[in-house]
Design a protein around this nucleic acid. Structure first.
Lengths: 334, 334
DNA sequence: TTGTAAGCGTTATCAT
DNA sequence: ATGATAACGCTTACAA
């Protein structure tokens, strides 16, 4: 690979001049600029990014930390973050922590040592020790899909409370009164928020959500299956269910099918996330959409603002979910 | 961030000694080594990777090029490649080309300028100009899921012909004789291979696959829907279908459901890829498994071999598909 | 407008 | 066994 030196030699100038031409930082004489550009073309010269990054203390890289790769939510984050990032001339280093604090720490470490320009986390735990490490680096950081109570770190979150409201309202608008909920892990705040919104809107309309009507799952397909098994063996009478993500909703659908309970004929079903399978299954799922693309846009924006020393976002940015009605919900027949 | 200089100062040695301790390249006196290590711990010192990469002409990075991110096949590649790579101490830079040659070129360019240690492609086109560029760099390169005819670049591919054989054999073992196929884009070699295997095994058993029984799709959900619409409007009589990926199979399933054609009651259905939805739908899909993990392992292995100057793989490595039987196929009733 | 030279944080060569 | 020193390829005062 040719270096600036080579270009300088061919153009008959010094390396600083070449640098100036490339970054057009300082005015350069038209004629010499032309000579330099010609040399650059001739050699197919491209500045080395490590040298540049080393010198500028800025690697031209954004790190994205996900707790899992094979999971549509994070695939969305990866997709949209990549899209945003390359648009702004950065490269993306992807790291999967597998929820392992040690892997997480190693990855963050590596990012710091690469002079990254920013780090985007999706769904870290409050406990995560990495924030302590990052505090002393002034590397721009943002958390997506999770609000950290204690830390003063900007986060982009969904209005999960509202999601619960949307699900509940829709079901009630269809006249359902016997309603169940399959939640995600309740040690995750966003699951509690969703449930809270759901409960609130129901109770405001005089509908109770007994604890037996709530099944705590883990966001996986199997949870949906177990939930239905539980509901069935408990013999509770319900006409509708909200599952806090599509995966569990589809699990529920599968188990309902197996027991010859029709959706939406006997039971209306709502999911959340709008994963691709949600419109592929029969019946297609009524679900709640998270604006993933917008979340990632905001996340990258927060980083860029920080880099350019504009307003540093210290609070949270809240985005709104929306309902998409498909085939799995219908008015209660009397 | 502290540098070697800081460590050296505290330990009262020169930077070279610090470097030696870290890389234990050359023997260092036990006592000085201890002093240095203490200083390192005290400062939480970690070598800067850009400086190291610049000096060593090796960035400690592997680039992964995918044509698309939101697509289970590539999600698999991303997942397994990441897994492999960090195991070997590299970081992963991910680039999505969106099938756009210009984006592809920019990405490769960026990788080269970062002194990457290897590049893994998934499914590039034969036309791709980047290989010309890469030829002069002697950066290890490997292609997954695609065999490049012309170039002498190692590739990891599936035995797609065999996949066709597996699908056909399974259907015939269930006594099916009226068989249709929904293919991927036939300008992609692997689709032609799959079809060829399928046709071959059928004809060896005296079963014809008339052109009207073949629908050329594009691997997307909608293709499955259109295929069924076409078969139905053409009025062809079939009892089983192989779709060359699960996405299209699920589309077909959806459209069959809509037309009250039962799977597997009226029609047996096979997919390919074993995407997560394939066991979530009802009936769960009989499908063909690609050993994605193994493919990625081999890919990384090829890169590592090249790096360590061991045997440089110049040929293709072929891996075998396997059949997993679930609910969507059953013996033909007479 | 241009060149010289120092510095970013390493590793590697050559002395000592 | 250890230390200077050059070099990796770039940017940026400072000089000219």
């Amino acid at each position: 690979m040719p270096s600036m030196k080579d270009v300088a030699q061919i153009a008959g100038v010094s390396v600083s001049t070449v640098s100036r031409v490339i970054n057009n930082s300082i005015p350069v004489d038209k004629r010499t600029r032309l000579r330099v550009e010609k040399a650059i073309r001739k050699l197919h010269y491209k500045p080395n990014l490590l040298a540049k990054g080393l010198r500028m203390r800025s690697g031209g890289i954004i790190g994205l930390v996900v707790p899992e790769i094979i999971h549509q939510t994070f695939v969305n984050f990866i997709h949209y973050v990549e899209e945003q990032i390359v648009d702004h001339g950065f490269d993306l280093i992807l790291g999967n922590t597998n929820e392992d604090p040690e892997k997480e720490e190693r990855f963050i470490d590596s990012l710091i040592r690469r002079n990254v320009d920013g780090i985007i986390f999706s769904r870290v735990s409050d406990q995560s020790r990495v924030f302590k490490i990052l505090e002393k680096t002034n590397i721009p950081v943002v958390v997506v899909d999770r609000f950290l109570e204690k830390e003063h770190i900007p986060s982009i979150v969904l209005n999960n409370y509202k999601a619960g409201i949307l699900a509940g309202s829709h079901l009630m608008s269809l006249d359902h009164k016997n309603i169940a909920c399959i939640t995600g892990p309740l040690n995750i705040a966003l699951c509690r928020e969703r449930l809270k919104g759901f409960k609130t809107i129901l109770s405001e309309n005089g509908i109770l959500l007994p604890s037996g009507f709530i099944y705590e799952g883990d966001f996986k397909f199997e949870s949906g299956i177990y939930a239905i098994k539980k509901f069935l063996s408990d013999g509770i009478k319900i006409t509708s269910i909200w599952a806090q993500n599509d995966m569990m909703a589809i699990g529920a659908l599968k188990e309902l099918n197996k027991n010859h309970i029709r959706v939406p004929g006997d039971i209306s079903l709502i999911g959340m996330d709008n994963i691709s399978s949600s419109e592929m299954v029969t019946p297609s799922l009524t679900t709640i959409i998270q604006p993933f693309q917008e979340m990632c846009q905001k996340a990258v924006q927060v980083i860029l603002n920080h880099i350019h020393k504009k307003e540093i976002t210290l609070n949270r940015i809240v985005l709104e979910p929306s309902l998409i009605i498909r085939e799995s919900t219908r008015p209660l027949k009397r």
